[in-house]
Design a protein around this nucleic acid. Sequence first.
DNA 1: CAGAGATATTTCAAGCTTAAAATTTTTAGG
DNA 2: CCTAAAAATTTTAAGCTTGAAATATCTCTG
Lengths: 157, 157
Amino acid sequence: MSNIAETADNEERDKQRLRIWLRLLKISRQMEAEIRERLRVEFATTLPRFDVLAALYREREGMKMSALSAALMVSNGNVTGIVERLVSDGLVVRVPVSGDRRAMIVQLTDKGRDEFAHMAGVHEGWIASMLNMLSDEDADVLVELLDNVQIKGVRPR
Amino acid sequence: MSNIAETADNEERDKQRLRIWLRLLKISRQMEAEIRERLRVEFATTLPRFDVLAALYREREGMKMSALSAALMVSNGNVTGIVERLVSDGLVVRVPVSGDRRAMIVQLTDKGRDEFAHMAGVHEGWIASMLNMLSDEDADVLVELLDNVQIKGVRPR
DNA sequence: CAGAGATATTTCAAGCTTAAAATTTTTAGG
DNA sequence: CCTAAAAATTTTAAGCTTGAAATATCTCTG
């Protein structure tokens, strides 16, 4: 086989992968912008706050700060600030962990639980309407394909 | 037909669309995080800066600030700060628009053009390697499906 | 040509984000 | 027991992001 031809093939291959990435990025940025806007206008909140509430809603027992930042794939320091603001709004509480004075568990308050449940329902409707151009078949194929994509970080250790 | 059954169908439909969104979001966040990390470590730069350079690279004549923020789908004020830092690094210049003293055109410098061209090549390789689990056939189907997705903002006017 | 309204951009305040440094507490080894 | 290393979290500095307000300039209409 020709090395020159193979190089051209690989170049086209790379370009096709780049195309996928650019489309993926465009769609997710547009959807994210739309969701941020609606959260702001309809619920006077932000996406990071919504994400924190969503994670806590799944874990009735609450989560440690470190578990929270791992689940959301953001830095520790990041979560500190967001939780601070949620606490002052009365949506979550921080309770000390018995037996480890370093750690804190964050939990939804009743108010936080109620507010999130309401927002989540509306949110699901937004998503469905944004993706309503996909046929049921397309949707199934898409879920399948996206499931195969696993991004591995380059991070060693 | 039964209204109850139809409601259940629609509910499942919505859930499937939500699944797509969550997978889309996860993949794009992971890829974005990986790209940010590599840009930081290998080129000591950031994704917003890379995005601005990419937009300017496509437009040899340069772009007005407003065109730049429209192309990147970010706010005007945002671009101001990023361009400021790129100017002080000597990668772009701002030239006044003759005939309109309000406007500014931003252009790559030779240094900016060279640096971006180099980074873009490496960047394409990163993307290809992150998506190398997709077969060529899967990749084609995925591009096709993603092309159909057009998010329409709710914004009136 | 004056003034109203439209345009291009910057400034501002607030919040998000990160990596790295600092703090506090726990755990393990000697 | 003592202390070095590990672990959980917060703080810090810098940059990104937004919507809204402020500036400056331009255009159009009367």
